[in-house]
Design a binder for these strands. Structure first.
Length: 466
RNA sequence: GGCCCCAUCGUCUAACGGUUAGGACACCAGGUUCUCAUCCUGGUAACAGGGGUUCGAUUCCCCUUGGGGCUACCA
């Protein structure tokens, strides 16, 4: 699942170095971008592994070597068919409602002709020769059990392209064998081409690895999630302020569950590596439910401290993006302020990005709101003015040193008594200018004594001006 | 069209022949509450259909239907 959400080049890379329980290295990528903690594997930048090189363009000779080996064995052949011919062929097949596929035109070309074409540098590809009379290809998938397909249904697919690059079919088989891959774990979309890969292993005389085809992650319309179509991606979620832990946990639950009657839904990466098991992987695709991801993300946000959240905000460049950091990249005073904003907003955050989104009053110099909003329900102007005046009186008595969250809550709540609405609503509107916001105690704490008093006094003066 | 895979609440899923079919998200209602959110309580909601096998099928088999995937010199 994770691979489906990652960059394709990254997914391809992971596919190459993947060993053993695949979910682990895949998701580990989320936590240590660029570094896969697998013995023998390389980083994206370094060359640590024992099976390199790992960059496809640096392995071209290897692929060519093995493609030629198949030609020598009679298991592959040069094909000089032009794109036009191939297109025409496909059109005819479609028109006649026959299965599409290569017709084997170059299967048995004259040796002389091949030699001539090669000398003339006629563009060519190397195609695999599906063995005749091979019958049914059967393999046991770790997740799906027995899967069978008739070899005759397969056509002679390309192994080496005319630009010298291998197709996935050749590359994955050659790489997996050379890199001693034991388990090939990939999306279900690869299931139909697995027989081709098995035939390749047979042609080379290599040991066939174990296969596990994971269910696909689906869009809401149940079609395959695809990065190329611009569907959901890990990067996209990280950019929008989702936590790695949440994405990981959520994706892990798509197509897998702990089983044995367990209703546990929260798993850390380490726990996952302990309990993950192919036998508990589902066979059917799973729709990606963003709402549940939101819920999961909120859960993980609640588990962080405000300081941790601030650090994440800074790492993710959210603050620059929002314009909070205008000059100094790490304004100490601003950080202290943001810490308070985060503490107050934490419980209503779905994503990191939302910090400040619904609380513009924390960042504005002056508020603008209709005066009438200050009155609680049917309360009169007088009652409202009285409440505001009382708030000023109390807050003025609170020293700078006592301007703490707990203390403010206690003091103001005591003052409000059982008439909370009469007192707290006007105070909250005076401080925020908004209908919805955190509690006035918390807002006052964040804003500080001077700003808070200033805002309440201004609210009071708005009445005077009426 | 051909081939392959799949099928439990709207969504993610539990169940490995015998359960009032459980949980989570979402949704709805109530509680907490100055608002919003959180939080707590409760509720609505599913075995696609038809045949078998069996004392007994959501569970095993077959068919139908439905959904998805593949069908490239993309992965």
């Amino acid at each position: 699942g994770a691979a489906q959400l990652m960059d394709e080049d990254l997914a391809a890379f992971v596919d190459v170095v993947d060993v053993g329980v695949v979910a682990v290295p895949l998701v580990r990528q989320l936590f240590h971008p660029g570094v896969l903690e697998i013995p023998g594997a390389e980083t994206q930048h370094g060359e640590k592994g024992a099976f390199g090189p790992y960059i496809q363009s640096e392995r071209l000779e290897t692929y060519r070597h093995y493609a030629l080996e198949l030609i020598e064995k009679g298991a592959a052949y040069y094909c000089f068919c032009t794109e036009e011919r191939l297109t025409r062929l496909r059109e005819e097949q479609t028109k006649e409602k026959r299965p599409t596929g290569y017709d084997g035109h170059c299967r048995a070309l004259d040796e002389e002709l091949i030699k001539n074409n090669l000398e003339k540098r006629t563009p060519f590809v190397i195609r695999f020769k599906i063995p005749e009379g091979r019958g049914t290809i059967t393999f046991t998938d770790e997740i799906r059990g027995k899967v069978a397909i008739e070899a005759s249904a397969l056509d002679d697919h390309v192994l080496l392209k005319s630009d010298g690059y291998p197709t996935y079919h050749l590359a994955s088989v050659v790489d997996d064998h050379l890199m001693e891959i034991s388990h090939v774990v990939r999306g279900e979309d690869w299931l139909p081409s697995t027989p081709k890969h098995i035939l390749l292993y047979e042609a080379f005389g290599w040991t066939i690895p174990l296969y596990a085809h994971l269910p696909l992650i689906l869009n809401e319309d149940k079609t395959k999630l695809s990065k190329r179509k611009g569907d959901k991606s890990i990067d996209g979620f990280l950019e929008r302020g989702y936590l790695k832990e949440a994405i990981l946990n959520f994706v892990a639950l798509l197509g897998w569950n702990p089983g044995k009657g367990s209703t546990e839904e929260f798993f850390t990466l380490d726990e996952l590596t302990q309990v993950f098991d192919f036998s508990q992987v589902n066979k059917s695709g799973a729709v990606f439910d963003s709402k549940k991801l939101d819920w999961m993300n909120h859960h993980y946000i609640m588990k962080k401290t405000p300081q941790e959240l601030l650090s994440l905000l800074q790492e993710g460049k959210f603050l620059e993006e929002k314009g909070y950091y205008q000059e100094a990249p790490a304004d100490r005073k601003l950080d202290a302020f943001l810490l308070k904003v985060i503490a107050v907003e934490q419980e209503r955050l779905t994503t990191l990005f939302e910090v400040g989104e619904n609380t513009p009053f924390f960042f504005k110099e002056t508020l603008s709101y209709p005066v009438a909003l200050l009155a609680w329900k049917e309360n009169s102007q007088e009652q409202t003015k009285e409440a505001l005046a009382k708030a000023i009186e109390i807050l003025e008595k609170v020293g700078e040193g006592e301007w703490a969250r707990e203390n403010l809550a206690k003091t103001l709540l005591e003052m409000a008594g059982d008439k909370k609405g009469d007192f707290l609503w006007p105070l909250r509107v005076a401080l925020t200018g908004a209908e919805c916001s955190p509690s006035p105690m918390d807002v006052a704490w964040v804003l500080g004594k001077a700003t808070s008093l200033k805002r309440i006094q201004r609210a009071l003066s708005l009445f005077e001006a009426l």
